[in-house]
Simulated scan of single mutants.
Amino acid sequence: MNIKKILVFLFVLSVLGCKNEKSTTNDRLNVVTTTTMITDLVKNVGGDMIEVQGLMGAGVDPHLYKASAGDVTKLSRADIIFYNGLHLEGKLVEVFEKMGSATKTQVALGERLDKSTLIGSDYFASNYDPHVWFNIQYFKQFVDAVVEVLSTNDPKNRERYAANANAYLKQLDALESEIKGVIETLPKEKRILVTAHDAFNYFGKSYDFNVVGLQGLSTATEAGVKDVQRLSQFIIDNNVKAIFIESSVPRRTIEALEAAVKAKDHEVVIGGSLYSDALGDAGTEEGTYIGMFRYNVHTIVNSLK
């Protein structure tokens, strides 16, 4: 029996043995989240009325993430599970499917969005680009969904969830106004964003950037020599001054691209590291969704000017 089957087997046992067991002794909802962006959102809405356990930390790639035995236990004991969906957490899908009969609430936030507005993708079974948090309007819809689910499961705190959400939505409004002002300082002809993989398409669509990723939408696909050569020529043809690594993707792919461009006697620099599929370290500004977005925009604009 391979490791994957063992984990699934352990999961089933844990669900059967613990599905009515809570990890805390108080009356607070026990909530488990997957990505760091969703964890930050849920904490902002839930405050001290809920217990939140995030599976993924800073720098973790959700495309490749596999549940540990400890994760399986957390999931089995959760009252509510919030995750992105749209096949972002591809390696967790089987675990979620096995939980179908468990008496708990699973919420794939991305699946609640209007699919007709999403960007298509040939890389994911859902046929949609799952990196929807880079559209702040979508993230606001995530907030609304979290409020609805928490209020349904904990109606006595409904008003407090709504108040927290309203305060957070005002912060998101302020963020969007701020970053639009920063981006307006960058001429449109310089808005070419070259990164390790296509995590920024929703960002590009929202703020008029031409986004080009070396690895496509999923980090599960490795960039080949032809990809590097093709993109290096694109950089030269469009006189791109800076390219960007990502905190959750090995930097070697962008370093190879930088070397390929310089080998053709064109100067390009690595403009910095962007946060794409994960936030920064907990306790830092970049460890929050708002701080991450602000940092990314300033890094991109300052490097491409």
Rank of each mutant, 00 (worst) to 15 (best):
I3S: 11
V8P: 02
L13R: 05
G17R: 14
N20Q: 12
K22R: 15
T25C: 08
V31Q: 04
T39C: 13
L41T: 08
N44V: 03
M56E: 10
V72D: 04
K74V: 09
H87T: 13
F96Q: 02
G100C: 07
V107L: 08
L109N: 07
L109D: 07
D114A: 13
G120W: 09
S121M: 05
F124S: 07
Y128V: 01
D129N: 11
H131F: 01
I136K: 13
I136D: 04
Q137T: 15
D144C: 01
V146P: 01
K156T: 10
N164P: 07
N164H: 15
N164E: 04
K170V: 15
L172H: 05
L172Y: 08
D173Y: 11
D173T: 12
I179S: 02
K180H: 11
T185N: 11
R191P: 06
T195A: 09
F203H: 00
G216A: 06
E222F: 09
A223R: 06
Q229I: 14
F234A: 00
I235N: 05
I236S: 07
A242V: 02
T253D: 14
A256L: 14
L257M: 07
V261P: 03
A263Y: 06
V268F: 08
V269T: 06
G271F: 06
G271P: 03
G272T: 05
S273T: 15
A278N: 05
L279T: 00
Y289E: 01
S303Y: 11
